[in-house]
Design a binder for these strands. Sequence first.
DNA 1: ATAATTCGGATAATCATTGTCCGGTTTAAT
DNA 2: ATTAAACCGGACAATGATTATCCGAATTAT
Lengths: 160, 160
Amino acid sequence: MQMKTGVEQSVYAVLLLNMLPEKAVLHSEVISGQIGASPTYFQKLLRKLVSADLITSVPGVKGGFKLKKNPEDIRVYDIYVAIEGQQSLYSPSGILNDVLELEKDDRCCVLGELMEEAEDSWKSVLKRETIASLSEQVESKRFVNHVTDLKNWVEENMVV
Amino acid sequence: MQMKTGVEQSVYAVLLLNMLPEKAVLHSEVISGQIGASPTYFQKLLRKLVSADLITSVPGVKGGFKLKKNPEDIRVYDIYVAIEGQQSLYSPSGILNDVLELEKDDRCCVLGELMEEAEDSWKSVLKRETIASLSEQVESKRFVNHVTDLKNWVEENMVV
DNA sequence: ATAATTCGGATAATCATTGTCCGGTTTAAT
DNA sequence: ATTAAACCGGACAATGATTATCCGAATTAT
């Protein structure tokens, strides 16, 4: 039970896109290069983010990706769902139902209720934080100089 | 990102073992038969529970498994850790460190802190519930008659 | 027109989980 | 003592999900 690395990469990608000025986009291979991800697979992650309406893609020469929503409206949870899908951490196999000889309608999986509560609790933390608040943390922490380096890098590599 | 089915099976196994009278044990194949798990793999799960000191094994003819701790002292979380190990849901790959050109010592993974908090929140729910409280729920809910059936089955199949 | 890019599908590679097998050890019963 | 039935633990195979690659099509700036 481990989170996909794709979620982590996607979060950082969105953080990078958040550094873009208006109208500018970032080429997918440039991003994956910076993050150190496999370019082809990373494209698929980006497309999932596009499908989830979190980022926008611009096809053609000088194309690339940029944010679609405001950073305050992109929760870490949204990125997680975009990449991993909505399936829950725990899929009850109905074992206890068999054991107790229950009907299928009898939705009373004791363990399931607990797991659902645990998962909700986990999700609520991911829903709390947004790209805006994460960016703020990165900037306000102890490495402001590195952030300016990174922003310079973005400006050098962005298009339009 | 999905929880191993082994965790679910293990929880139910422990619930079954909790129905045993003192000194009695349950044969591993009998349990896996009831739960509908593959017998050989299920043995491995049981041995993990043994290693975690949650249950005891009795080798030899008339051998089997029984609880080692009191049901109040076995948390769902303990079973989860016994089966899945202690690795966290999120293993930071240090991407942001690379991006920000940080030293390895600089443990300031923004996303990591958030994920850790989320995971702690998730775990706290699993730590709250014990085998005792789960058993109580099963018994007190709406299927008391099924539980007595199950207890009869345990008595028929237990050893010593 | 051409080159550079995203899009979407098919498919392969990798890895964790699940499952099997076998020889060894322990114990009850004969 | 011998035997049979169970647990022990390691090696290894099968399965399935994630990751990764490739290719042709669509789009757009030059």
